[in-house]
Amino acid sequence: MNTVWIVLPILVVLMFQLGIELDGRAFLRVARSPRAVAAGLIGQLAVLPAAAFGVAALFDLEPVWFLGLMLVACCPGGSSSNVFTMLSRGDVALSVTLTALSSLVTLFTLPALMAFAAHWVSLYAGAEIELPVGRLVVQNIVLLFLPMACGTAFRRWRPRAAQRVYRAVGRIAFPALMLLAGLFFVQYAQTIVDNFALLGAASATLILAATGAGALLARLFGLGSAVRRTIVIEVGMQNAAQAIAVASSPLVFACERMAIPAIVYALVMNIVLLLYLALVRRRAARG
Rank of each mutant, 00 (worst) to 15 (best):
M1H: 08
V7K: 01
V12D: 07
Q17M: 12
L18A: 02
A26I: 10
F27N: 04
V30P: 03
A31W: 15
P34Y: 08
V37Y: 04
A39E: 09
L45P: 05
A50C: 13
W65A: 04
F66Q: 00
G68C: 05
G68L: 03
M70Q: 08
V72T: 05
A73V: 11
G77T: 02
V83T: 07
V96D: 01
T97G: 01
S102W: 06
V105L: 15
V105F: 14
V105D: 07
F108W: 15
T109N: 06
P111Y: 10
M114D: 01
A115S: 14
A117P: 13
A118C: 15
S122C: 08
Y124G: 07
G126S: 10
L131K: 06
V133H: 05
V137A: 11
V138H: 03
V142K: 08
V142W: 10
V142F: 08
L143N: 01
L143C: 04
M148S: 02
T152S: 15
R158M: 13
P159Q: 03
Q163W: 07
R164A: 13
V165A: 13
V169I: 15
G170A: 10
G170D: 10
L179Q: 02
L180M: 14
F184I: 04
F184W: 09
V186K: 11
Q187I: 05
I192K: 05
V193R: 12
V193K: 08
V193Q: 10
L199E: 07
L208Q: 02
A209D: 08
A210M: 12
A213H: 00
G214K: 06
L220T: 06
G224C: 03
V235R: 00
A240H: 01
V246I: 15
S249Q: 06
P250I: 08
P250L: 05
V252Q: 02
F253A: 04
A254V: 02
E256I: 01
R257S: 12
I260V: 15
P261D: 03
V264C: 04
I271T: 07
L273I: 07
L273C: 10
L275V: 13
Y276P: 04
A278E: 10
L279G: 12
R281T: 08
G287M: 09
